[in-house]
């Protein structure tokens, strides 16, 4: 196989209303076993996946927040999050299930620029 690649997963959908958030997460987890450079970025409504106190069982769903908490076990630590997305939704670090690294628009452009493959859901 060719050289190690940078795979960027952009998660920009809120959980539960559609299966996109779960699907994106499944892709990132599938990638984690391939020993590549993986970046996970929560953009826009995607930051709602990070909320504490989710209880998917209420609507017959697995709790996505639990899967987010487990990312670390797959070697995906401190995912990236769009700073403005948190701000626009009045979310603070203590509202989130895991610690994240905040990026501004310039950081997001650099991240995409430096990636080899972009998955975006």
């Amino acid at each position: 196989m060719a050289k190690r690649k940078k795979l960027l997963f952009i998660s920009r959908s809120a959980p539960y209303g559609a299966d996109r958030a779960r699907a994106l997460l499944d892709m990132a987890l599938a990638a984690s076993v391939y020993e590549q450079d993986i970046e996970l970025l929560f953009l826009g409504d995607g930051v709602y996946q990070l909320l504490r106190d989710q209880d998917g069982g209420r609507i017959g769903e697995k709790t996505l927040g639990n899967a987010i908490e487990a990312l670390e076990l797959y070697g995906i630590e401190n995912p990236l999050v769009e700073a403005a997305a948190l701000e626009e939704r009045s979310l603070r670090a203590e509202d989130l299930v895991i610690s994240t690294v905040a990026l501004d628009a310039g950081g997001i452009r650099n991240l995409i620029g430096n990636s080899d493959v972009v998955f975006n859901l």
């Binding site: 076993v33 493959v117 975006n120």
Partner: peptide, 20 residues
């Protein structure tokens, strides 16, 4: 096949293009 085949494919391709 499993989702791993998507990752395998993108690692072995020059371009990955998604449609939805």
């Amino acid at each position: 096949g499993g989702l791993g085949l998507l990752i395998d494919a993108s690692l072995n391709s020059d371009r990955t293009v998604s449609f939805g």
